[in-house]
Design a protein around this nucleic acid. Sequence first.
DNA 1: CTGGATCCACACAGATACTG
DNA 2: CAGTATCTGTGTGGATCCAG
Lengths: 217, 217
Amino acid sequence: MTTKTYGQYCGVARALELVGERWALLIIRDLLVAPKRYTDLRAGLPKIPTNVLATRLKELEQAGIVTRRVQPRPSGAIVYELTPYGADLDQVVLALGRWGARSLGELRPGEIATAETLVMALRSTFEPGDVKATYELRFGEVVVHAIVDGESLESAPGPLPAADLAIEAYAPLSPLLNGELDAKAALEAGIVSTNGSVAALARFAKLFRIGPTPAAD
Amino acid sequence: MTTKTYGQYCGVARALELVGERWALLIIRDLLVAPKRYTDLRAGLPKIPTNVLATRLKELEQAGIVTRRVQPRPSGAIVYELTPYGADLDQVVLALGRWGARSLGELRPGEIATAETLVMALRSTFEPGDVKATYELRFGEVVVHAIVDGESLESAPGPLPAADLAIEAYAPLSPLLNGELDAKAALEAGIVSTNGSVAALARFAKLFRIGPTPAAD
DNA sequence: CTGGATCCACACAGATACTG
DNA sequence: CAGTATCTGTGTGGATCCAG
């Protein structure tokens, strides 16, 4: 947003001037998971017009939120990465995701779920405790993992072959993600399948606030 | 946003579809402080085109975020109020305000500070403790108060005559609001004046994470 | 193939005037 | 007070094209 100000001396207004334009926070969401190239961003946001993506990246770079880096040869690739300042938007994105997930109903036609979305969903619903465990979560082609060690969570795209619990989730994912269904019921309803015990699944569900009544078997 | 979707099965994307349009979160910010009439909203957002305000209110009402209520006679006034669902956006607005406040520099020409902004700034920087105190904060015409009782904070527009500490703040407010100046230095630099002790001011600064090194005298 | 730039059509925002 | 109407301009969407 170049000259489009809200005319308010206010943190909320300033934030919206910087990252309030269309697509900006979705680009940032994807960069919060990992640095990415232009093409990776396009792949994760298939509906973004290429000129809008290019414009946003320039604006975000100008605002000091994103840096554009050219990889050393031979790759020579151009990588977009969040600055520490931009990375501080994680709390904003997580709060938005928590709130918006409640309005997630059925997967609508033409709508996609990416690994970045699943990673942010896990991060936004994580509740620190004293559990130590590793998980792999699959949703069709999309595979992410989570490594929980007490207070800390590390979640990223990709499998985790040695995971304590591997979960296969099917659409609709929303009842699972926003607490309308508990883990045991989800298993029985065939919404998830797992190669672990129901107890392990319930522990997973509790860690990530999935399901209103995490049941142990 | 009626038919403008991001094509992503994602809480962040859904949230942005609901409240990501221009002015929407600023309207919500003001309604988080208190229910308001159309004219009150206009007064707090002088730069919003009236047709945009009307459109947003209709969209937010349709989305179940805002309700439109007609007061009983004789007032007959129309009041806009957040639903519980809409009120849950407080964490989003507070996170945005915290992040954006860091980019708040000088008060720019034509820019205004409202009571709603100050209230949200206090709420977003509050750190629970075991302090029990009341404050009145004045910034020109704008007056807000804060009542702290341990974990709980109640902050709203308007004075609080019996406040333990009354603070008069002058522009630029930003060094005070985003931690570039400590309370004692702010007092000495004439950025604030107070009818309380420096110790009380330092306690206020610490409660609201104002200033890097809350100094006691 | 990556990393964009260019062009066009249009919906939405901005500004202002007007009304029940 | 609480909006609607109208006009204009810019940002967005969508498609295509281009250079390294």
